[in-house]
């Protein structure tokens, strides 16, 4: 590399590198260290070390991690959050698959428009999209009254829709659906239709053609979409905060409460680190499955 090229590389890569080190890497590392510190007397963090007789004494602890195991509540909350994220992912697959398939099978000139229509709502404000469901699921809405007319007609007590786990999952599906449609479409669009014709010639019915040909071939798209839905859903705090009730909070709500309300930063950091671990685990699993699928294919 010539000197000029070196300078070029330096000028291009250093400004973003320095910025991201300062405002992403350093804060992340501080959060990791905070997990091992004592909480301060008035919230925040206690000093990390003290000097006694000219010697530095470190005040670090594993207590914050032990707290996780002391109360089953935290473990349950992680499981519940993963459950919500999983339900959201499955609902997204069910809703996105027919749509992605239809777009992929439509004439080329319509596909861009059909995809754009999937993406367009995604560009409107996140809070507005959640707020819309506050209206729809609210006690006076036409939808809620229709549901309750049906429910009471069948002889049950009227039900509440807003501030329930159902509302949380509906909101999360609504917000994340495009992330499932796009990778599914990208995969389905590449399928060779001759395979389906061959399967039909060999006597496979519609269900068999789907289950034995299309579905296995579409798995990389399903997994890619699932990662894009599951990961943000797992760390969600705004949707359960707005659409959920006291019984439908997720791990994100506990983290927000620890950091901003109780101001127990060490424990909030521990929870954040566990969430990061969960996200990395899912990402690694997804990557492994994708690699395995490629090898088989």
């Amino acid at each position: 590399m010539t000197l000029q090229q070196r300078i070029g590389k330096w000028v291009l890569s250093w400004p973003p590198l320095v910025y991201m080190v300062l405002f992403f890497l350093v804060p992340t590392l501080i959060m990791v260290v905070a997990a091992f510190r004592y909480p301060g007397d008035y919230g925040g963090l206690a000093p990390m070390y003290s000097v006694e007789d000219g010697k530095v004494v470190w005040d670090l602890t594993l207590e914050n991690f032990q707290r996780l195991t002391e109360d089953a509540l935290y473990f349950d909350l992680f499981i519940k959050s993963a459950g919500y994220a999983l339900a959201t992912t499955l609902a997204c697959i069910l809703m996105a698959y027919p749509l992605a398939w239809l777009i992929a099978r439509s004439p080329k000139r319509y596909r861009d428009l059909m995809l754009l229509l999937v993406i367009l709502p995604f560009w409107s404000n996140f809070l507005i999209r959640i707020y819309a469901w506050m209206i729809i699921l609210g006690p006076q809405s036409a939808f809620t009254r229709a549901v309750n007319w049906l429910v009471t007609g069948l002889g049950f007590e009227p039900i509440q829709l807003l501030f329930t786990p159902f509302a949380v999952i509906v909101g999360m599906v609504y917000v994340h659906l495009p992330f499932m449609v796009l990778p599914l479409y990208a995969n389905l669009e590449k399928h060779d239709m001759a395979l389906l014709d061959a399967a039909q010639d060999l006597g496979a019915n519609a269900w068999q053609r789907f289950w034995r040909v299309t579905w296995p071939l579409s798995l990389p798209g399903v997994f890619a979409g699932s990662a894009l839905v599951f990961i943000p859903a797992l760390g969600m705090f705004a949707i359960p905060d707005i659409l959920g009730g006291t019984d439908s909070i997720m791990i994100g709500n506990l983290i927000k409460q620890q950091i901003l309300d109780t101001r127990d930063w060490p424990f909030g950091s521990v929870l954040s680190i566990m969430l990061t671990g969960g996200v990395l685990l899912i990402a690694a699993l997804g990557a492994a499955v994708a690699r395995g699928g490629r090898k088989r294919g």
Binding site: M31, I231, G252, L260, L275
Partner: peptide, 15 residues
Amino acid sequence: IAIPELLMGVSLVIF
């Protein structure tokens, strides 16, 4: 881009 936004919010406010 890949991690939940919440995590960035937490680390930045502490920072």
